[in-house]
Design a protein around this nucleic acid. Structure first.
Ligand SMILES: [Mn+2]
Ligand SMILES: [Mn+2]
Ligand SMILES: [Mn+2]
Ligand SMILES: [Mn+2]
Lengths: 219, 219
DNA sequence: AATTTTTTTTAGATTTGTCTAAATTAAATT
DNA sequence: AATTTAATTTAGACAAATCTAAAAAAAATT
């Protein structure tokens, strides 16, 4: 079956919201998609008719197995295009989301197959998020944020939680990207700020909010 | 201003039909877009309101300067994507049209600029058609078909007129592509068939219809 | 010039996706 | 437990893009 751009955007947003809370609410989805709750209710009835979501009125909703499979296909296309935009076209990683938001809806399976091969089968996108394979299988990467790791440890940035342009702009300002190696000097109890030392840069302090959104693995 | 996918498809089709006949008819556009004449009339009123076409009812229509500029932008995107699909992703040249038909509507100017640069500023697409530049300027290539060229001459294929999958499939069968060098043995008066000899292949005969759609320059 | 055929437009309906305002249900507070 | 507040759904409207069938205009034929 083939889905409209609008349906695909809803499906993908439900998928992302489910990562945080198992069942999704009408308001949160409306907020995510910058639309109105009434529109969400309308679309959910349609997605239910197409057997992609479990939904009972007033009870919230979630993707079923079929819906999740569709969602992972869209996520796969989105992340492959993001990789292409950064690693082939030379975009900065904070400029690619909106373009990938359009490209992900181009519906040729052959295109994605050949793109994947052209890109040499990348495992993660420019934000460190894993790329699902053709069958919708995706590596689950254990995520530890800078806020949770003990002082004095040296770690490597593997992904970022908040991917708003504002956050990505800030990371760029600090010269922090995926693969950046840094040492945690200390945590401040007052507001959760963290002092870090990036290799070949002087130590600096990032806010608790930033620390919670920078995920790392041991380097 | 920003145009819908549907508006863009209409604009581009009007542009292409204008290459053959200066003013375009409702039926021909409906046929080109595989839609109904009534739908064409509706859309034309909209395009007129947006000041992209000259149109008076029952009088046919054509793009004005503003409309032509939009059209050339779409043609540019289409042909750049076709080049990408063939030369980077490894698609066959008869498989790329429908995919480019979708990709051409992705609306980031920065994307097309970087794609152009990534592809090394190609001048023609995989079918030999010229790619308009950023300002909508396009090289006019003098087109002579195999049907019009004298026997015994050796020529190089530069583009193809009819780009239906059927035609492209046939060219592939004859091992003829853009850049193929061939010698014209003789023209048959009865039905316009042409005997040709492609380098390193035995001589063969192509129909008059094919001959008229294979454009060449002197090699 | 009158008639027939073809082309084009209009009228009215349909589908998709959206909205506002009102009604309903659920959750939180007193 | 009653009341207030918040979340969700329904009702009804609207814009975009399409369609069918009927009407109107233009072109071709007799
Ligand atoms: Mn999208
Ligand atoms: Mn990403
Ligand atoms: Mn198109
Ligand atoms: Mn082409």
């Amino acid at each position: 079956m083939n889905y409209s751009v609008s349906e695909e955007n809803y499906i993908k947003s439900i998928y992302h919201l489910q990562q945080q809370t198992d069942t999704v609410t009408t308001n949160s989805l409306a907020n995510e998609l910058r639309t109105k709750p009434a529109s969400v209710t309308d679309m959910l009835k349609k997605l239910r008719t197409k057997r992609l979501v479990d939904y009972e009125k007033y009870r919230g909703f979630k993707l079923n197995a079929a819906g999740s499979k569709i969602a992972l296909g869209i996520v796969r296309r989105h992340r492959l295009w993001e990789f292409f935009l950064v690693n082939k076209l030379g975009f900065e990683w904070d400029k690619v989301h909106d373009i990938a938001e359009e490209l992900e809806h181009v519906s040729s399976a052959e295109l994605i197959k050949k793109l994947d091969s052209f890109l040499n089968f990348p495992q993660t996108d420019p934000h460190g998020d894993p790329i699902p394979d053709t069958n919708g299988k995706m590596a689950v990467i254990k995520q530890l944020s800078l806020a949770e790791i003990d002082a004095k440890k040296t770690v490597v940035v593997s992904s970022v939680g908040n991917q708003s342009p504002e956050m990505l702009e800030m990371l760029k300002h600090y010269h922090i990207g995926i693969g950046t190696s840094l040492k945690i000097n200390r945590h401040f109890a007052f507001d959760g700020s963290v002092e870090i030392k990036v290799t070949q840069q002087s130590a600096c302090i990032i806010s608790g909010q930033m620390a919670k959104n920078i995920f790392v693995h041991h380097g």
